[in-house]
Design a protein around this nucleic acid. Structure first.
Lengths: 262, 262
DNA sequence: CAGTGGTCTAGACCACACC
DNA sequence: GTGTGGTCTAGACCACTGG
C-alpha cells in the first residue's frame, strides 16, 4: 500500500521510512517480527529485490536484523553501562579482584568470562603503545565476557613480557589480588592512563568472534597505563559492540567538558 | 578473476575479501579509485548485482565509498583527536574562550563554526538529564564545527531557560568569557559532569546533516554538568562521525581502568 | 555525450530450521 | 515438506557529472 512512483523519494526509501517510523515510535516493539519479504512484496506491490533493498537499509541502520529462517526482527536497544574508570574511585580494602564480575553481580546479573593467556608478538598498535622494541614480546590475557550467558565484549590485556615474567599474570586464572596489585608488587605502580576510543564498523573477524549482526558498529577502547617512571606497563584492548553498551565517565571537581569553557 | 563456485564462501564474499585485503594492506591506498562495476563484472565474470553486493559489504564496513558518478574510492582513515576533558586541566587566566577553536589552531588547522541559538522544548533525553518539568523550556546553542572548511561534528548545548534567561548565552555569538564563566556569574559553578557515549549508526537526519556516507557509525557524546548544589545546569549533545575522530581521555593519579584491578 | 553508480524488475536455486 | 532469508543472473531505465 501507498508507495508512489515518480516521487523524489525512491520506492525502497518509502518502504524503509514507513517501517522505520513504526520501529521508532514503538508500533513495532523491540523483539517483534516484521512481515516476511513475501508479505511486503504483496503489500507494496514491488519486486523482491526492492523489498530487500528497503530492509537492508534498516539492517544497516542497526534497527532490525534478519534471523534466518525465521524472518526480520526489531533489534533490542537496551544497553549495559560500561564504566572504564570505575576503579579509580575509592574502594574498600576488602579487595574485589575484578570490577567486571563484582559490578555486574551487584546489578543482579550473572557475569562470567573465559581467560586465555599467551605470549605473543603483539599487533603493531599495541607495540607502539607499550613502546616495545621490534623483537620484544608481550603477554596477553584474552578475555571474553558474558552476561547471563550472552557474549557482550572482549577484553585483551597486554603486558611487556619483561615485567610480568613469572608473575601470577601469566596464569590463566582470575587474579586474586588483582592485576594492578600484581604489577605494583613488581615495582610498577600505575599512576596515569590514557583512554582512546575509536568508533568504527567491525572487521569480519570481530563480527564473527563477537557474533555481530550487520549494522552493528563497535567501540575500540584502548587503555594504556603508565607507572611512576612514566613507562607503559599495560595496554588493554576492548572491543565493545555499540548496540550493547553505553560508555560512561564521571568527572568530579573543576571545570566542564567540551564546548565553550573558561 | 579467480572466483570459484561451490566453495563454502560465496562469490560476493570472495570478491569482497580480495578487495578488502588490498585496501587493508595498502595495495590500494586511501583516496584511490577502485575498478568500476563494469570492470569488476568483466574481471570476475559475474552479474552486476553480485559485484554490487560485494562492494556493498565493503561500503558497510566503512572501507570504501561510492562517489557517483566517479566510482568507488578507498576511504580516508585518519582521525582528529577529540578530548572531552581538555579544559579540565589548569588553564592560564588569559582565558581562551573556546577550546575547540584554540586547540585546533594550535594544531595548525583552520577551525570555524556556525552558531544558532533558540528556545526549544528539548528532546526527551535532554529533558531527563536537565531534570526539566514537562512544560519547561531550554535554550539550545547549536554549533556545527568545521576544520579546514570541512564539517566534522555537531555540538548542541542545552541550558534550562530559567537559569540563562537574559545572559550572554542567549546571543548567537562566541561567548568571550566562556559559557562556564557565564554560568558561574549566574551562581552556577559546574563542579561535576557525567559523560555518556553511545555508539550507533546515524539516523537518516544525522546522515544528511553531517553528510555521512553509508557505513559511517557515530558516537553520540552527551555531557551533563552539575553545579555546587548538584543541579544539572547544562547538557551537551555531540554527534561525532566515527571515521573522523578518536575520543581521548587522560587520567592522572590513582588506579587503573577496566580489567582486573586491585 | 559517455560513463558512472542508483533503482527496479522477474526470475532461479540454495541452506536452513521447524513442523 | 514448507517457508524463511541468502545468493545470483540478466536485463532495463535513470540521474548525475565530467569532458
Amino acid at each position: 500500500m501507498a508507495v508512489s512512483r515518480s516521487v523524489s523519494r525512491s520506492v525502497k526509501q518509502q518502504i524503509a521510512d514507513e517501517l522505520r517510523e513504526q520501529v521508532l515510535n514503538g508500533t513495532r516493539a523491540e523483539g517483534t517480527k516484521l512481515p516476511s519479504e513475501a508479505e511486503l512484496i504483496e503489500q507494496y506491490g514491488v519486486a523482491r529485490n526492492t523489498v530487500r533493498d528497503a530492509l537492508a537499509l534498516l539492517v544497516n541502520e542497526g534497527l532490525i536484523e534478519a534471523r534466518r529462517p525465521h524472518g526480520y526482527f526489531v533489534r533490542d536497544r537496551r544497553r549495559m553501562q560500561y564504566r572504564p574508570q570505575s576503579d579509580l574511585r575509592a574502594r574498600p580494602t576488602t579487595a574485589p579482584h575484578d570490577t567486571f564480575l563484582t559490578e555486574q553481580e551487584q546489578a543482579g546479573r550473572t557475569p562470567s568470562q573465559t581467560i586465555e593467556v599467551s605470549i605473543v608478538d603483539p599487533p603493531e598498535p599495541i607495540k607502539e603503545r607499550l613502546q616495545l622494541k621490534a623483537d620484544e614480546l608481550a603477554v596477553v590475557r584474552r578475555r571474553l565476557r558474558y552476561l547471563d550467558g550472552e557474549l557482550i565484549y572482549s577484553n585483551d590485556s597486554y603486558y611487556p613480557l619483561s615485567i610480568v615474567q613469572g608473575t601470577p599474570i601469566m596464569s590463566p586464572h582470575d587474579l586474586s589480588p588483582g592485576a594492578n596489585q600484581t604489577l605494583a608488587d613488581g615495582g610498577h605502580v600505575q599512576v596515569r592512563a590514557i583512554d582512546e576510543i575509536y568508533v568504527r564498523m567491525p572487521t569480519p573477524d570481530e563480527a564473527k568472534r563477537l557474533d555481530l549482526t550487520p549494522g552493528t558498529p563497535v567501540a575500540e577502547h584502548i587503555i594504556t597505563g603508565y607507572d611512576q617512571d612514566d613507562r607503559p606497563v599495560r595496554s588493554v584492548l576492548n572491543i565493545l559492540p555499540g548496540n550493547r553498551h553505553v560508555i560512561i565517565y564521571e568527572r568530579d571537581g573543576l571545570e566542564p567538558p567540551d564546548g565553550e569553557s573558561a
